[in-house]
């Protein structure tokens, strides 16, 4: 019953949004359609308390970053791919904040899981970096059926990625996001290198405690000016040429630079996207 009501509601909104969107302008910190449900749990994977908690966090993100977050669980994709379903759901549903409808949508379905970014979301949740990076970190929760933890963890990472975007230097391939574990690993490697370096230095100090050593040569006793060369000949004998194949660099993946690859949905809006 509840499910049908929701579907009807969404369908109505989809219609309304398609017609009305061009005429609506809203203050940037507020979602364009604040009354829309940010969690559409048609597969019933979350309890009501869990939804309430996640919704309150989504509202925080609205306020802090003027950025929309939508979670959809749906098994009936109406014959569309996960990508098209997610894009259309976002576009026709009228989600997003500001003129460019900035936001991100996470779709969980039997046919796959998809993250779709719109507006500023195309940069923050980029197809090349943001989505695969976050997807990899939250996928284990969804694999294990821990949907609440998965969504909650997605909100944690979104918060960090959006915060970084505000500094004007969003996380990209060239400015990678590092978790605490990543940082600790690097510090661990630094510590090992520092230990080896210190051991070398202190071993050198230990060696210098013994100054009584044999000399290997007698250079001090060469009579000054006595050194003469009577023959200096350098003759070319032969040469060998070796060649090694230069590894082919994959030009398609490295050409992205700071941009993000995007595609256009049926509504004409650009999206980033990727499964996880």
């Amino acid at each position: 019953m509840k499910k049908q009501l929701r579907l009807a509601f969404v369908a109505m909104l989809l219609f309304a949004a398609t017609v009305l969107t061009p005429f609506i302008t809203v203050a940037s910190a507020q979602p364009n359609n604040p009354s829309l449900p940010r969690i559409v749990d048609n597969s019933d994977l979350l309890t009501d308390q869990e939804e309430d908690f996640l919704l309150s966090r989504i509202s925080e993100i609205h306020a802090k970053y003027a950025f929309d977050v939508v979670f959809v669980t749906e098994n009936d994709l109406q014959g569309k791919s996960t990508r098209d379903f997610a894009d259309d759901f976002f576009d026709y549903g009228g989600y997003g904040v500001g003129d460019d409808n900035s936001g991100v949508l996470v779709l969980i379905s039997d046919e796959g899981r998809w993250i779709s970014g719109t507006g500023r979301g195309i940069m923050v949740f980029s197809s090349d970096y943001g989505i695969p990076r976050i997807g990899k970190m939250i996928a284990p929760y969804f694999d294990d059926g821990e949907y609440f933890d998965g969504f909650n963890s997605f909100l944690n990472f979104s918060d960090e990625f959006l915060k970084q975007e505000q500094t004007g230097d969003p996380y990209t391939e060239g400015n990678p996001y590092r978790t605490l574990t990543d940082k600790l690993k690097t510090v661990g490697i630094i510590a090992v290198a520092a230990f080896i370096l210190s051991l070398l230095i202190v071993s050198g100090m230990k060696r210098s405690m013994k100054t009584a050593r044999l000399r290997s040569e007698a250079g001090e006793y060469v009579v000054q000016g006595s050194f003469v060369l009577t023959r200096e000949s350098d003759t070319f004998l032969y040469s060998t040429v070796t060649r090694t194949a230069i590894p082919k660099s994959d030009s398609s993946s490295s050409s992205g630079g700071g941009g993000s690859s995007s595609h256009r949905g049926s509504s004409g809006t650009s999206h980033s996207g990727g499964s996880f």
């Binding site: 060369l229 009577t230 040469s239 060998t240």
Partner: peptide
């Protein structure tokens, strides 16, 4: 390239 280098002399 390989070279034969010869040095004669004294000190």
């Amino acid at each position: 390239s390989y070279y034969l280098v010869l040095r004669d002399g004294g000190m």
